[in-house]
């Protein structure tokens, strides 16, 4: 600094002092900001290690295979098998994501490729509001509308038309079912999936579309043959993101899915997903030995699966940002 002729000759010390103090502030801000910025990375590690530590009593006592694939859930007798809960979570997630995928892809394509400014302006608040509605309100809607719909309309229809096929047979006609949970989840994850797919379509260069349209392809043919192959990994990542959101959803699913610890065999069977298990039993877990470790183990299983889903989705989506 001192070698700089302008600074050293002209007005002086004072100015140099000011510059130095601004520099110092900047350096300190940089250090503080850096510490704050690496906190999120640390947070993931802390949550993982914390859950692992607290569920260690049960992980060290039973082999992992027994925990993951055991069907017995009798905490008072010391039997902790998560199989029916894991399968229940998977069922609800698969049904929810399966119902959401086709309309989500179509809507995202429509908004990205066809819709004019006015339709986009109309669609945005719809998706924003769907994303803003709290899970418990989705649960209330599910309880008031979806469960009765499944009980009185979808169930009887399905039993009549497809009852010979186990997947669609109605054994438990209460309406509280995998299907009800799936429908609620499908609506909940719709805005997320649409937003992600929409963004991906926007990353494809316009020239690609123009080239295809110029040689006489229709717009749908352009989408199908040119754009979709380009964005396919992104669409899969969007679906995985939606699935991970569905996998961990607690309150909304808990309110409509029946919460019976069994392996569901039909869309109309009740299920008991992992998050619901944690939410319902956390209060009384202290009374039974190993119960708290078992529930935290459930949280750990949930966390590990969702971490894998999310890391996969994020890594795939990163490619589109460039």
């Amino acid at each position: 600094m001192a070698q700089n002729p302008i600074q050293s000759t002209a007005t002086t010390r004072n100015q140099r002092v000011v510059v130095a103090s601004r520099r110092r502030t900047d350096t300190w801000a940089r250090r503080v900001f850096f510490v704050i910025t690496v906190l999120p990375i640390g947070l993931i590690a802390v949550v993982l290690i914390g859950l692992l530590y607290r569920s260690w009593p049960i992980l060290s006592r039973y082999p992992l295979v027994d925990l993951l694939f055991g069907v017995d859930w009798k905490p008072s007798e010391g039997r902790f098998g998560f199989y029916s809960f894991i399968v229940g979570t998977v069922w609800v997630t698969v049904v929810g994501v399966g119902l959401a995928i086709p309309p989500c892809i179509l809507v995202a394509i429509y908004l990205a490729e066809y819709a004019g400014a006015r339709i986009r302006l109309l669609a945005k608040p719809i998706l924003d509001v769907l994303a803003a509605i709290p899970p418990v309100v989705y649960g209330v809607w599910g309880l008031l509308s979806v469960v009765p719909l499944v009980e009185t309309v979808l169930g009887p229809w399905s039993q009549q038309l497809l009852g010979f096929w186990g997947l669609f047979a109605v054994q438990q006609p209460t309406g509280f079912s995998v299907l009800a949970g799936g429908i609620v989840l499908a609506v909940m994850i719709t805005p997320l999936i649409i937003a992600v797919i929409f963004e991906i379509f926007n990353t494809v260069p316009v020239d690609l579309r123009n080239a295809s349209l110029a040689i006489g392809a229709t717009r749908w043919e352009t989408i199908q043959r040119v754009l979709l192959p380009q964005v396919m990994p992104g669409i899969i990542a969007a679906i995985v993101l939606g699935a991970s959101r569905a996998f961990g959803e607690t309150i909304a699913v808990l309110m409509v899915v029946g919460n019976i610890a069994q392996v569901p065999h039909s869309l109309f069977d009740a299920a008991y997903p992992l998050p619901a298990l944690i939410a319902n039993n956390y209060g009384e877990m202290m009374s039974i030995p190993l119960y708290d470790a078992a529930l935290l183990c459930a949280a750990l299983i949930l966390l590990v699966i969702i971490l894998l889903f999310n890391i996969f989705a994020t890594v795939v989506l990163k490619r589109f940002v460039k």
Binding site: V47, G248, A279, L302, I306, L307, F309
Partner: peptide
């Protein structure tokens, strides 16, 4: 992004 994905029950 990963933290965003962690369910609030966890």
């Amino acid at each position: 992004d990963v933290l965003w994905g962690i369910p609030s029950i966890v």
